[in-house]
Every structure is written in C-alpha cells, then in structure tokens.
Design a binder for these strands. Structure first.
Length: 315
DNA sequence: GTTCACTAAGAAGACCGGTG
DNA sequence: CACCGGTCTTCTTAGTGAAC
C-alpha cells in the first residue's frame, strides 16, 4: 500500500492516542455516540461532530461518582478526542495534528517552540501541535521513495537496520530541517474547564506573540525560531466543564482568551462573543495547503474510511 | 552497535470548597 | 465572581539490562 509521509505521520499520531490507557477505555463509549451522530458518515456529518464534542466527551462522564481517576484522566482524554477529530477532518490534506510526544514531533519544531527563561529551557509541554507541510515532492510521493539527507549531509536510512521498521522520526527531522521555512506550526492548547485555567493560554500566547522582552526570555533554540516558520498560531480549546450560564462575554475567563492568535473554541456550536465551535478552527487556522475546503477533501477520502483509514477505528 | 522490554520517578492535569 | 490551595491519579520519559 502506497502511503505518503504525511498520512503515515497521521496514522502514527492516532495510534499513539490509543496507546494511552484512558483514551482506549473511553473509546468504545464515545464510538457508540459518534456512530449515532454520524451513522453513514457524510462529510457534513463528520465536520459537524465538532459541535457535539462536548456531548461525546460527557458520555463517559455521566457516572455520579467522581473519582480522582476521572479527574486526572479527563484532561488527557479531551486532548486525545480533539486530536482525533481534527485529524479525521484533515484526511487527504497536508496538515497533521499531533498530541505532544517526543516520538512524533520533529526536533526542529520542538526547538522552535521552546521558551528560554534565562538559562532555564522550558519545553512548553504544549498539548497539541498541528503541522502543515509544504506542497513538495517528498510529502506527496510514497514514503518509501523519499530521499533526504540529514543536517550532516548523510542520507537518512528509511528503515531501521534490525527489524526494518520505518524510520519515521529521523526522516521527519531531516525534512523539517530542510523545509522549516515552509512549515506552519499551530499550537492548540486544550483544557477541560475554562474558569480556572484561562490564564495559562493567555500567558503563553503573550510570550509567543511578543517581539522582545526586557530581559532573559527568548524563544527558540538550536537556530530554529517560530518567526522563521511560515505561520504560527496559538489557540485554545475547552469542553467546557463549567456550567454554561456562568460564562458570559464579559467574564474574565472569556476576555482572557478572546484575542489569542489562533482563537478560542469549544466542543459546542458557535456562540457569538464567547467561543467558536472547534470545527471553525479548521477553516481559520488549518485551511492552507489545499485549494478546496475541508468538506471537499473529506468527501473525496470518505470511502477510504474502511480501508486506508481504519486506524481511526470509526467502524 | 542496535533494539526492545521493563521499571521507577517526575510532571501534568482537573476540580472543588472556601474566601474576600 | 475571581482566585487560591490542596489532592490524587495517569501518562511520559529517562534509565537500565538483556537479547539479537
């Protein structure tokens, strides 16, 4: 089966979600809900799942007993659900959403988003990262045909020596180093509750959008910086778990995230002055790379859900 | 030299009740 | 209504040792 490096990265990203225990146990319940919302999925139904992500998320939150394990696992699960949904809407395009993992993020990218506070190197531990790759041959041809040299000029072997597994991260590192200026980086900060945590995305967005600091803080290392990437945004996605009547357009929590570069979103239909549906992020931040919109690319790929895209485990 | 499996330690994260 | 402090579990990563 021919597969380009972008779709292989997407597959690896989704498989990584299922390797986490919390997501794996929640999945059967969510899948039932998703199947009822999109029974014979059309492109419109798939995209519209974004309006119902909160509903899907809450199907595993119904039990009245609120144990500490639900609390702790909730955050990682929400991240994973958002990651799964965005990747599903991005099939066939050149954008991949990755849940933070050293195994899957190319080093030039993680170097670029690193914040140095004096000599302290703060890996932002950002939740999700969306990468849009350029329209170049290496990203569209079969991943087995890629020919790329690393930063030392050595050709990167496509497979590991012993077990012949695909050498994903080294290949990505080399590609990202060579094409860094043409790659878009979008950080997607996920939080389940809104009230308590709105400061965090606000502060990180301030840091990333600031041109200069009085002292001590710099962004990027090893020669890579977000200002050199093709685009950079920072956005916020919440469930939210707070009661909706407590959120008004005048609330501090809303004001805090209103102006961040990538926008603020939730797993509900768009509400003017408060937050947009997560599905709007696709058009706003993750649109480039194709001339047609997401509905068109999903429509083209939808028949492959039972073949090339079984790793979404939708069926 | 490379890869895998396993273990231990560290960090992240959500949420709630109390307070001014 | 915003903020703070405290709790507890899960996930990730680094490290070690064994096998090829």
């Amino acid at each position: 089966m021919s597969q380009n490096i972008i779709e292989y990265l997407r597959e690896s990203s989704i498989n990584n979600l299922f390797s986490a225990n919390g997501f794996n146990t929640a999945w059967p319940t969510w899948k039932t809900k998703i199947n009822s919302l999109a029974p014979t999925p059309t492109q419109h139904q798939i995209l519209a799942l974004g309006d119902s992500l909160k509903e899907i998320f809450y199907t595993t939150n119904m039990s009245s007993s609120r144990s500490q394990s639900d609390v702790s696992g909730g955050g990682a699960n929400w991240e994973a659900l958002v990651c799964w949904y965005l990747n599903l809407c991005l099939i066939g395009r050149r954008t991949v959403v990755i849940k933070h993992s050293k195994k899957l993020i190319p080093e030039p990218i993680s170097n670029a988003i690193t914040v140095n506070y004096g000599s302290f190197i703060s890996n932002t531990e950002s939740d999700l990262i969306a990468l849009t790759f350029p329209n170049k041959a290496n990203y569209t041809i079969d991943k087995e045909s890629i020919c790329i040299s690393d930063t030392n000029g050595t050709t990167v072997p496509l497979h590991k020596i012993k077990n012949s597994k695909y050498n994903l991260l080294p290949v990505l590192n080399a590609l990202a180093a060579e094409d860094f200026k043409e790659i878009e980086i979008h950080i997607i900060q996920c939080k389940t509750n809104w009230n308590d945590n709105a400061q965090i995305p606000m502060l990180w967005d301030m840091i990333y959008s600031a041109k200069a600091f009085r002292s001590g803080i710099t962004i990027g290392r090893e020669g890579y910086s977000i200002v050199d990437a093709k685009a950079f945004t920072y956005s916020f996605v919440t469930v939210p778990t707070v009661k909706l009547d407590k959120i008004a357009s005048t609330s501090v929590a809303v004001q805090r995230v209103r102006n961040i570069t990538g926008g603020n979103y939730w797993g509900l239909p768009t509400k003017s002055g408060i937050a947009s549906s997560i599905k709007e992020m696709l058009d706003r931040n993750l649109r480039t790379g194709e001339t047609v919109n997401h509905l068109s690319t999903i429509k083209n790929e939808i028949s492959k859900l039972s073949a090339d895209y079984t790793y979404f485990r939708l069926l």
